[in-house]
Structure formats: C-alpha cells, structure tokens
Design a protein around this nucleic acid. Structure first.
Lengths: 339, 339
DNA sequence: TTGTAGGCGTTATCAC
DNA sequence: GTGATAACGCCTACAA
C-alpha cells in the first residue's frame, strides 16, 4: 500500500528530460519553455508528486520554520499569541514548531537545543519564570539566529521585544477609577522584581499623583497574584479602619478571587468598592458583576512579534536588532467599576 | 558574527579520523572505542557542534515530526488537547508542527499538503466543520501516513479515532439530576445531525427510561447552542404551563446563557431549576452559582491520540488501524445542580 | 532552453 | 574499530 513517493527524477525519467530541468520547471524558472513546464506539471500531478521540503531545505540551508516557545499553550493569553503568530506566519509561508517550557528552565534549554538542531530560521519566545541566566538564549543570538521576545523579558538580551506599556495601561486603569469617583484606591501588586509588575505599580502611582490623590503605603498589597492571594489581600484590606472605595488589581485572577470574597462579606461591587483587573481573561466577562479590565492583546502581540521576526530573518543585513515594539492595550469597561 | 555551524566533518578533520566514525561515535554505536567517543564528544563541545537534523532526517527518510491540525488553537478544549499531545510527543522525542484550519476546508486541504511536503511522520486532526468530503485525508491514508482523528469524526475515514462516550456521559449527567430529586428534566439539544449531539440526546433518554421518568417531546429544545440559543430556549421553557425542575444542556455556553436569563427572571438556581452543562469550560467554575458539567478531558484525549499515533508510526506492520479509543469523562458536580 | 556535475550533512554498507 | 564510498532528494553554477 505504501508506494514510495515520486521525486523529480521520476518525473524526469518519464519525460525523458533531466531532473534539473524538472526542478527549474517546478520552481517556475523563467529559463524553461512553457511547454516543458506544462508537461512537468501534468506528470507531477499524474505521479502524485510532492516536493521533499527537507531535501530542499537542506540544500538551501534554511527550514522555513519558526520555533515558538511559550510557558503553557493552554493559557488563554499564550494561545491568543499563537493565533497571532500563525496569522502572519501562515501567510508568509512559514511553518510553526510550537513548544512549551512549562516555566521550567531545564526544559527551555532543551527546547532551544532541539530548535537549533532543527535549523529553525528564527525563534519567538516568552521566557520561563524560572529563567534567571539566559546564556542559552545568548548562544542563539551568537549563532545569528534571529529571536524576538514577547511578554516576559530579560535585560541581558539584545533581541527585539514586543511588549505592552504596563505603566501607561495602569495609569489608564487607575484614572478610570478616579474619573468614576474613587477617592481611595488600593493596589494589589505582583512581585516587584518582575518588570511588568513594577511597571503596573508605577502607572498607578503616576495616576494618583496627576489627579491629586495621596499615595498610601498601606493600600499597596504585594503577592504572587494567585487565587488565594486575591482572597488574602482582600481580607487584609478589610482589616483597615476604612475600606478603600476602589481596588486596582494587577491581574484578573486575583481580582476575581477578591471580588468573590468581598461579595461573600456583603460588600457590594461596584457600589461599595469598584474593581479593575488586568489581562482581560475570558472569565472576566462572565463574572457577576462583569469585571472591568485592561485588555492584553495577545493576538496583536503575536502578529507584531512575528512580523518583526520575519523581517529579521529576511533582512539579516539590516541592523534591526534591539527594537522594542509597544502594543497598545485598551481598557475594557464593564460593570465592576462603574457606579 | 554568524560563524557557520560545525559539522561532523569539522570534528573529523580536527581529530584526524573519518566522518563516519564521528557519526557512529555521536550516535553511541557499540562498535566504536570508548576513547574515541570521548575525544569526539569533547571536540563536539569545543566546536559547538549541533547535529543537523534535516540532513539526518533526509538520510533516514523520516522527520520525527507530528503534524497537528485543529480548528482553532485558542479554543480552550483544543489548547488542552495540544498540551496532552505535547506531553507525550515531547517525551518520545517528536516535534510538533501545529496548524489551525479555522474551520475552513480550503485551509485544511492546504495544510495537509504542507504537512505532506514536510514529510511529517503522522497527523493528528480534528476535522473542520466545513469538511464534507474527506478526499484529502484519504489521500494521506493511501500514502501510508498514519493519522488519528479526535473529537470531530467522519465515517469515510478508516483511521483510528479518540472520542468520549457522549451517550454514557449524558446518561450520567441526567442520572445525577434525577438522583438530586428532579422529576421533570428539559434538554437543550444541539443539531441532531452532528453525532455528538444525537449521542447526548440518547443518553438523556436512556436515563429517563431507566429511572422511570416520562420522555416529553416538548421538553426537548434543539438549537445550535450558541449564547443566544441558550437565552431563547430558556424563554421558550418559561412559556410552558409548568416550569421543569431541571435542565440538561448539551454545552456550557448555552447552559450559562440560560442560567443568566433565568436568574434575571427571578428564578432561583438550583432551588427552582437545577442545571447541568457539558464540556467544563473554564468559565463554568466562575459562574454564580458555579455550573455542574461533564468534563471533556482535552488533555487526556490529546495524550491518548498521540500514544496511538506514535504506535502506528513505530509499528507500521501492526494492523492497528481502525481503532476507536473511548476516553472516560466525569461529572464535575458544582452548585447549579445540588439543592 | 536544457544538460552536467557537484554538494548540502548525515548515515548505511561495504571493506579492511 | 575504523575508513571509504555512495546515497537520501533537491538545487544551482557552469557548460553546451
């Protein structure tokens, strides 16, 4: 049943011409007679010919493949990014090899090795949380393999990056709360050694300043922003002599957990406390009340990162490295913040 | 900066031995002296040697790559499936080329062609909704390329399949409602020409029968199970002289829409009407009350499909085709169904 | 416009 | 144990 695949040699033999002519005909070279092309095409169809891309790539020393490494494919943000990547890559004829690091540095290193061995033309990566040293990535850069980072960054890497402006986004979010009458805004912050979270804290501060609200240390609660953190931060808040009238939470997970807790304590949202989250997870729209949040446009980030990467791949001479593209994120206003 | 990669020839030259010996040493052949191996390994490291898998694959006529086609990467179910696929594939040393058909038949055909050209060792696919004729897939089968279908099926294909038992799952769901005191259970069904939905309807009927409830035509509302369908079906239900005391909905999307509508009409869930959905979308746990639903274990489906596929790839002689693996799905009991 | 020849990096099969 | 050689399928100077 498994008949072996036809090659250009088979076509050539049938047509009594040379394989090189077939090769040229198939790649539509201008230096081959139309009639020959027609004959070749016909025979190719007849024999069910499929080009062997591996052979072609070996010869041309490229793979037409982009390697993608994300912490987890099934996280909504990352799967949207992948859709964006696919959108551009498919159009430009690139294949995608997609891998997940599971946020483990060992696995990330291993994946880089595999991608290297597979001669990928470029790499798109959101580095793992465990990644402190980035030698394995510097190695990539040194081999001249273009790389674009998105979402998670590392300062030691010179590659291009695609990010959102966390500071500005948080400024917008906080401003929105103020414009809706908030006088005392708490902030649930993430680990401040992670750049995105320090950015978010900054934006919050700037908004307070600009609109004349006092920054109060006791209203800043720092955690890893998991479910349970949202709950404990909310409990913490309730111990204050005076409950703030708004909270800006640095991600949706913690925001939703906090919301649930506050509701269970009889606190009304948004009447007593207005809440804004960050990321626009799908669940944000389902909550009751629905959660106002900053959109983190994974699809656009993926598209932009891929455009950049393909640019680097196809113009290796351009000194395009070290670019930083900032994707705009917009506030999705829902019920949780509007009194 | 872009120094060209080292090859086994470079190692051989440095060591003044033959490339073939290097090749054998690197693949740890038993017929090469340990000392030589050590020398080779050392030199490989020194030169920063990375094997060129494309060349190796060309020679060995395989790609160590599995092609994956899903309608949309960002749909939660599919991204969980992909995680399952990755779990197994990574362990067995296979690469993944992941593509999305966007539920378009044209794109699906094109992707199959690309995968074929890339010499993938096998294909995992959930066929697009538009796919009526499956000639492009039959072509794959004829070329002897193993394929495993999951989720969405087509009767003309002989390949192995991985599915859940929709009938049994629905039986369990309905039984659960009955055991919790439901006497009159409505069913929001999907298009009954789609196999999964007719299966779900069947399971519902069987449970009614087994536990002595009457099947009533007017309690079956058929739709495409989108948001708006959930709403209109719920409204339909409210026109009945007597509201049923439970609903089994064939997916979570419609279940949640219906729940929201009923709540807005002052109907209490689960006290007045108990609800069970199907699929265990992430939002199901966030709803208030949280939604009881059948888990559709994408991760396990992906793992099993991949195991099967790799089995087929590595044992082409086994006549393993035509297998049908049924993955067990379990009921996730939450608040919406327990009075 | 077409054919010839050589090579991309690896490995299988000889022979020594 | 190791070396020589050919081949995987394709592409591309160069020659004709």
């Amino acid at each position: 049943m498994k008949k072996k695949k036809a090659t250009i040699h088979d076509i050539a033999r049938e047509l009594k011409i040379d394989p090189s002519t077939v090769s040229r005909a198939l790649s539509n070279s201008s230096r081959v007679k139309q009639k020959t092309k027609d004959l070749v095409d016909e025979m190719a169809k007849k024999l069910g010919y499929q080009p062997n891309i591996m052979a072609s790539n070996l010869r041309k020393n490229r793979s037409n493949t982009i390697g993608v490494i994300v912490p987890r494919i099934s996280r909504h943000f990352f799967s949207s990014v992948i859709e964006g990547i696919d959108e551009i890559a498919y159009g430009k004829g690139y294949n995608l090899v997609i891998c997940q690091s599971k946020d483990e540095i060992m696995r990330e290193k291993d994946l880089i090795k595999t991608l290297l061995a597979n001669q990928v033309d470029g790499v798109l990566i959101s580095i793992s949380m465990e990644t402190q040293s980035v030698e394995h990535l510097i190695q990539l850069e040194e081999k001249g393999i273009p790389m674009v980072l998105f979402d998670r960054m590392h300062d030691d890497l010179k590659s291009s990056k695609v990010v959102i402006d966390d500071c500005d986004a948080s400024f917008q979010a906080t401003k929105h709360l103020i414009k809706n009458g908030a006088k005392s805004i708490a902030h649930f912050a993430g680990p401040t050694d992670v750049s995105i979270y320090s950015g978010r804290l900054n934006g919050y501060r700037k908004a307070l300043e600009k609109y004349g609200l006092k920054f109060k240390e006791e209203l800043i609660l720092t955690s890893r922003l998991m479910d349970e953190d949202g709950i404990s931060c909310a409990l913490e808040l309730m111990k204050l002599p005076q409950l703030p009238d708004a909270i800006f939470v640095a991600n949706d997970i913690a925001a939703i957990a906090a919301m649930k807790l506050l509701k269970s304590k009889g606190i009304r949202i948004p009447e007593d406390v207005a809440i804004v989250g960050f990321s626009n997870e799908p669940i944000a729209s389902v909550m009751e009340p629905s959660l106002t949040t900053m959109d983190q446009p994974g699809f656009d980030i993926g598209k932009e990162a891929t455009r950049l990467l393909i640019d680097h791949i196809e113009n290796p001479d351009h000194k395009l490295n070290n670019q930083k593209v900032v994707i705009e994120s917009t506030l999705i206003v829902r019920e949780s913040s509007v009194k």
